[in-house]
Amino acid sequence: MAQLKLTVNGVIYEADIDPRLLLVHYLRDTLGLTGTNVGCDTSQCGACTVLVDGLAVKSCTMLALQASGSKITTIEGLKQDGVYHPLQQAFWDNHGLQCGYCTSGMIMTAVDFLKHNPHPTEAEIRHAIEGNICRCTGYHNIVKAIKAAATQMADNRPLQRPQGQV
């Protein structure tokens, strides 16, 4: 067993865990944060994407211990003061989801992406989400939703580039 200390959605957790425990299983099984889904086990589909210190990471391919000392944000931590994140709102407004299984990961990837590129073109959006697979929407409305969120966010508040990131 090994000592883990990390922050998830603003709450500090300490635990003694099996060193081989995957981050996604820690989030889902230990913390009960089941909004983060597992889709492929091999880092292709991105359904398990969470933010680790602000960066989009596929949590099925990271050990929980590797996240020790980090600040994690999952889909459950995105809504602030009862208000949807602009991306959540845009996915709803633009029918950017059907079965919803890829949605958490897709939104978390887009959160990271829009921090780095607040005014993306369609091609840039499509490139940004190519590590997230959706089998329902054909991506058409996901691209539309991310574009709409970008516009909304750019209109409403200045965006900050995270430190040390491109």
Binding site: I75, E76, G100
Partner: peptide
Amino acid sequence: LITGAGKYTDN
């Protein structure tokens, strides 16, 4: 579904 509150079987 956009808030991670979906009721999938594995949950």
